[in-house]
Design a protein around this nucleic acid. Structure first.
Lengths: 221, 221
DNA sequence: ATTACTAGTAGTCGAGTAT
DNA sequence: TATACTCGACTACTAGTAA
């Protein structure tokens, strides 16, 4: 993404374009960026073409909203600056309740191509299953923050005509028990579910049932 | 500041240039920014000329540190993005201990040109003196954050051949008592001292002596 | 290996203007 | 009033190269 477009995207976010659809004239935008009306117009068009905002041009101004991708672009900048100015938090604690998933997590963890990497990255052999935590609404922003951190990368691979995608994991503890949080790469659907693996069967070890409240403390470094 | 230079300044901050002097080759910087070595070199030179970083060029690479102005430039971006993603906090609480200043605060508060503005902006007539709070080291970042917020502007003026500079104030409470924090414009020397005015004499009202721990809750909105 | 100068060019900007 | 197109001017890039 070109640097000059960042400036415009940034200003539009400042004007509230992340949350709501805002109405703005290209000339007023231009004035606040010290650019010409024409350039402001072109920047908005280009950001639209790049899929970073959605634009509705009317004879009385432009209405626009940043897309999730546009917001994400700025969030990456934000998290980097946050790390610079605040220092990285060593821990991030997320709360939610135990829930039952579709059981597909277990399938993935059983794949030797993943399992071997988990052993190397985390230092334990995962129990062949995942625990799904349904996060409270207030915790979803923390989950997004987590997505911004590097973590430990689990590489994708192909096996038996199937391809398995890249993932990212973070060492963590769940109610004090060693585990790890696994984020499947770029699946923005399940923002409210956290998948946890562990050397032990967490449900039986901690006597968890659906609805039990748990705290997951994720190590960031 | 040109947008393309921001990108470079940002990357240098990410690489740790805010705190320490870092050594980097222009070609490695270029690679991480998807620019040519020549452009990276020119960017560093231009940022140096603009006073945003200090540069020591050697045949084995460039050593550089961001200057306070360079850091400030990025902090403004950071605070704007923070407001976008976190929403503005309504309160900011700073802790420190009561300390004795040079007594010049009292001189300023007594000036009618300032006093009248305080009355209008804050709704109280300040006691003719200031209370100095020596902030704990950990609170200094919060003080800097405060500087980034608009606050209520106290205009500068001239009187009796003297000119009095602009200041910024924030309504606040100190251990529950109404007061206001006053930031003198662009005095980056006393980052660790907070000057507080109040309708009452805080030292006697709250029985404060040098070394007493106090909490100042600043209203931002 | 470095940094950074010069020269030529790709790309961005803003004036004018159509809609 | 708006948005946004064309096009000449100019900025800012990269290649080549010196130190």
């Amino acid at each position: 993404l070109k640097a000059s477009l960042y400036q415009t995207l940034f200003k539009l976010a400042e004007l509230g374009g992340c949350e709501a659809r805002i109405r703005i004239s290209t000339s007023s935008l231009a004035k606040s960026l010290n650019l010409s009306q024409q350039t402001a117009s072109r920047h908005i068009i280009e950001l639209d073409r790049l899929g970073l905002l959605k634009r509705y041009s009317t004879p009385r101004g432009v209405e626009l909203t940043l897309t999730p991708r546009g917001v994400e672009e700025l969030r990456r900048v934000y998290l980097t600056l946050k790390a610079v100015f605040e220092g990285r938090p060593k821990m991030l604690t997320l709360s939610g309740v135990v829930s039952t998933g579709l059981g597909e997590g277990a399938y993935y963890v059983r794949q030797p191509g993943y399992r071997r990497q988990f052993e190397q990255l985390l230092g334990f052999t995962p129990y062949p299953g995942t625990l799904n935590i349904k996060l409270y609404d207030s915790e979803v922003t923390k989950r997004r923050e987590l997505e911004g951190y590097p973590g430990k990368i689990v590489r994708g691979f192909s096996e038996n005509q199937r391809s398995f995608g890249e993932a990212k994991c973070f060492p963590a503890t769940l109610n004090g028990v060693e585990c790890a949080v696994v984020l499947i790469n770029r699946t923005h659907h399940n923002d409210t579910i956290l998948e946890v693996i562990s050397p032990v069967h967490l449900r039986s070890t901690l006597k968890l049932t659906d609805g039990t409240v748990v705290n997951v403390s994720v190590k960031i470094d």
